[in-house]
Amino acid sequence: MCLSIPSQVIEINKDEMTAIVDTLGVKRKVGIDFIADEVKVGDYVLIHIGYAMNIIDEEYAKESIALYQEIIEKMEEEEKRAMIDESDNCPSGGGG
């Protein structure tokens, strides 16, 4: 029941309390009763049973993505080191 694919707002109709959003290229009309005061065209929102629940905070999303990038790089660096260590300490001494 719960999907968390973000949708982008492309048109707003305040009189009707609806917006047209784009979810992975699929356009649909959703209720904006809960975000009507703040929503702007271009915002990312989460849709649940035909209503936008919130506006996704891009700053926080970027922060998370940057954090993951950092952790991935750290891991890759550690993996590289482990590989180098392993080859340096090769028990057979590299045959020679």
């Binding site: 694919i5 973000p6 982008q8 999303a61 993505i65 993951y68 991935i72 891991m75």
Partner: peptide
């Protein structure tokens, strides 16, 4: 938009 879902499913990030 792609970043907003791809990055949160990235197998590398899951592993890290």
């Amino acid at each position: 938009l792609k970043d907003l879902y791809d990055r949160f499913r990235d197998p590398k990030a899951i592993k890290a």
